[in-house]
Computed example of a mutant assay.
Amino acid sequence: MEQDDPLRLSSSFGAAAAAYAEHRPDYAHAAVRWALEPAPGLRVLDLGAGTGKLTAALVALGADVIAVEPDPAMLTELRRTLPAVRALAGGAEAIPLPDASVDAVLAGNAMHWFDMSVAGPEIARVLTPGGILAGLWNVIDDRVEWTAGLEQVSGSAAIGPRDTLSSWRTATADMHLPKSGVARFGSPEQAEFPHGQRRTADSLVATLATRAGMLVMPEQEQQATLSQIRAFLADRPETSDGEFTLPMLTGVLRARRL
Rank of each mutant, 00 (worst) to 15 (best):
D99L: 15
A209Q: 01
T250M: 09
G131A: 12
L136V: 07
P72V: 12
S10N: 12
A17S: 12
A134H: 04
H195E: 05
T170F: 06
D4W: 08
A191P: 00
W146N: 06
T210S: 07
A124K: 00
T51W: 03
L78E: 11
P98L: 14
G131W: 02
T164M: 12
P98D: 15
P83V: 14
I140M: 15
M214I: 12
L45Y: 01
R143S: 14
R43Y: 06
L88E: 14
L233M: 09
Q190I: 07
D235L: 05
R184D: 07
S180P: 05
A87Y: 07
G62H: 12
A21H: 07
S10D: 10
D235T: 12
D5V: 06
P121I: 13
L253Y: 01
L136Q: 00
T164Y: 04
D46Y: 09
G52E: 11
T51K: 01
H23C: 04
A87C: 15
A94V: 13
L54M: 11
T51H: 02
L133C: 08
W146E: 08
Y27F: 15
G120P: 01
T55E: 11
I229K: 00
V32I: 14
L246P: 00
E151S: 11
L9C: 02
V68T: 02
L233S: 00
T164A: 13
L97Q: 06
T76G: 15
R143C: 09
L136I: 09
K179L: 06
D235V: 05
E122C: 07
Q223N: 10
L233E: 00
A89T: 14
G149A: 10
R8T: 13
D141S: 08
A87R: 03
L165A: 07
S117G: 15
L177N: 02
M217V: 02
S227I: 02
D4F: 06
T239L: 07
A30S: 13
D202E: 15
E238H: 06
G130H: 09
T225D: 04
M214Y: 06
A158K: 03
G90E: 13
G90I: 12
A35F: 05
S240W: 05
Q197K: 13
T172F: 12
Q222G: 02
L127W: 02
R125E: 12
V205N: 00
R43V: 08
A30C: 03
A183V: 02
L204P: 00
F232L: 14
